[in-house]
């Protein structure tokens, strides 16, 4: 081979690597979809089932959007599940106490934001690692939920609370509309505002950001507030969908949201949390859960497969990176 041909082939290899890195996860998702379609062409790809999948993932997508904001700065939020549960409990108790529905929801969202604020203060101003502080608040919020609800499920919510999680505008479930709104808002915030630029700058190099005049503490604090807020939105919608509040209803959010963001980091951009990636991660998990359900495979196996898929996605993308 001549030199120029060697260079050409190296370039090609690099491009292949880059292609896999950028689009590999998306191709994996499509593959997953095709496989389920081939196995159950009658049920899986039907409009009804797809609507089902999206409705199922809507709350997760909302929570994961908030986690994405935090993870863009390189931090981490383990407490979103516990916040969602707590918010659901408090919201239900307020309504049970006769406070009208919109006010209850408003207070619940405020509470979620405040919980995020606590995380943010601990991490940004207290200097604790995000892992430790959100692990601690997760435990504390979880305990608080159990204490407030006495460990039982709260039923008997007002009729007008059903709409959020169960109502629909025409064919489209309201929770899906809410999800789309959240996605658009968070996307615009991350990509089009100065705040988004600051988040990504801090994630890339915190010290350089600080020396460039970015108030890194404030920006990180705000990110945790947003994460808490979106966890609360997810918690309220979930409570409405279940039409009851359980002190551990939100728990699966913690790992699933993190898993979605990590899966998303392998897509579209090089190892950076990004919103479309997160959405893709959420969809992968939704499609897999739904597909395996249709095939009648039990949920324990689903968990195992979720773990395997995350490892494979991250491994493949880092292999592709090494090759380049």
């Amino acid at each position: 081979m001549t030199d120029s041909r060697i260079i050409e082939s190296m370039k090609e290899k690099r491009n292949t690597g880059k292609f896999i890195r950028t689009w590999g996860t998306l191709m994996g998702f499509i593959l997953l979809f095709v496989i389920f379609t081939i196995i159950r062409p009658d049920v899986f790809p039907s409009g009804r089932n797809i609507r089902n999948i999206i409705e199922q993932v809507a709350t997760l997508a909302i929570v994961a959007s908030g986690v994405t904001v935090v993870m863009v700065t390189g931090d981490f939020d383990l407490s979103v599940g516990a916040i969602a549960s707590l918010v659901g409990i408090v919201c239900a108790m307020l309504m049970e106490a006769g406070i009208n529905t919109p006010v209850s929801i408003f207070i619940a969202l405020l509470l979620g934001t405040a919980a995020g604020f606590i995380n943010g203060v601990l991490v940004a101003y207290g200097g604790l690692s995000a892992f430790v502080s959100t692990l601690a608040t997760m435990t504390a919020f979880g305990g608080l939920s159990l204490l407030l609800s006495r460990g039982t499920t709260i039923f008997g919510l007002p009729e007008n609370f059903r709409f959020l999680g169960q109502g629909s505008l025409g064919f489209i479930p309201f929770s899906v509309i809410l999800m789309v709104i959240v996605l658009v808002v968070v996307y615009l915030m991350l990509e089009q505002t100065t705040y988004g630029r600051r988040l990504y700058a801090i994630g890339g190099n915190e010290e350089a950001s600080f020396l460039s005049g970015i108030n890194t503490k404030k920006v990180r604090l705000a990110a945790f507030c947003l994460s808490g807020f979106f966890a609360a939105v997810g918690g309220v919608v979930l409570t409405s969908r279940l039409y009851s509040a359980h002190p551990q209803a939100g728990s699966p959010f913690m790992l699933n949201a993190a898993a979605a963001v990590f899966l998303g980091m392998t897509a579209f951009r090089d190892g950076e949390a990004n919103l479309w990636g997160t959405l893709l991660g959420v969809l992968i998990m939704g499609v897999m859960g739904n597909g395996l359900n249709i095939l009648g495979i039990n949920t324990y196996v689903q968990s195992i497969l979720t773990g395997v898929i995350i490892i494979m996605a991250v491994l493949l993308s880092s292999l592709a990176k090494k090759k380049a």
Binding site: R197, Y200, A201, G204, N205, E207, A208, S209, L211, D270, E272
Partner: peptide
């Protein structure tokens, strides 16, 4: 590299 630039972001940013 440590204090001046964010390597993973664009020149614009």
């Amino acid at each position: 590299r440590k204090q001046g630039i964010v390597l993973s972001r664009s020149i614009y940013e």
